[in-house]
Design a protein around this nucleic acid. Sequence first.
DNA 1: ACTAGTGTACCATATAGATAGTGCACTAGT
DNA 2: ACTAGTGCACTATCTATATGGTACACTAGT
Lengths: 122, 122
Amino acid sequence: MNFDNTAPIYIQIMNLIKKDIILGRMQLGEKLLSTREYAQNLKVNPNTMARVFNELEREGVTFTKRGVGTFITESEEKVERLKKEMAEDIVRNFIEGMLELGFNFNDMIELIKHRLEKEAVQ
Amino acid sequence: MNFDNTAPIYIQIMNLIKKDIILGRMQLGEKLLSTREYAQNLKVNPNTMARVFNELEREGVTFTKRGVGTFITESEEKVERLKKEMAEDIVRNFIEGMLELGFNFNDMIELIKHRLEKEAVQ
DNA sequence: ACTAGTGTACCATATAGATAGTGCACTAGT
DNA sequence: ACTAGTGCACTATCTATATGGTACACTAGT
């Protein structure tokens, strides 16, 4: 993994796992890799992964069976809410930033369209 | 000022000043407040403001006259480039985030429209 | 010459994040 | 009963931020 320095690594890993859940790459109730396996795969410290699991459980995204492992929530509704929250965060950040720079709705659409076309070419 | 904890304070202050320049709230070549004045106004440490000035100069946004003060760049072209870069950063973050969550162009437009309408009401 | 104001360079401290390592209680499978 | 694997708790160290404080060279205006 290549982490950037704009956010703590444990936050970035949390978002990775959340996206896996939202996009259906992990099923409801499925067991996650262990902290030690994740730590090895992502080349981070086991303590960092422990923090990730702690926070994910605190947010209700996962639940823990002591001595067994950590599992994705079984609530479809929670996953839906998670996706909605993540999308709203991104949208809000985008709109606030663009308004502060003096762009209006049409400017936003044009910039997005332009950017998507450029990506499609590459 | 109310700073959030998602980014270092000195970064947030840099963005404040950049926006002042981009939106024309500060003129080209205009003298900035001193580090001590900024520190008092924003209730941060003078050392933090010193770092802000250092980074802004490193990015070419400002220039320094030793013993006199720090001034906005006089290059209209640099300001234009700055605005473009900041906008592109925001747009790229938005698009990457939304694509990773499984949204397409039309979804993005709809979410932005919806969010703007909700803000207009409030 | 003097003074006030400027950026700048230090030193020290505190906190959050990340790393490294050890150990323990619990669980499932044998 | 035993063992491997699990989450979890602990201690320690390191770095980046942020704060608090002091001091110095430079500049403009008097």
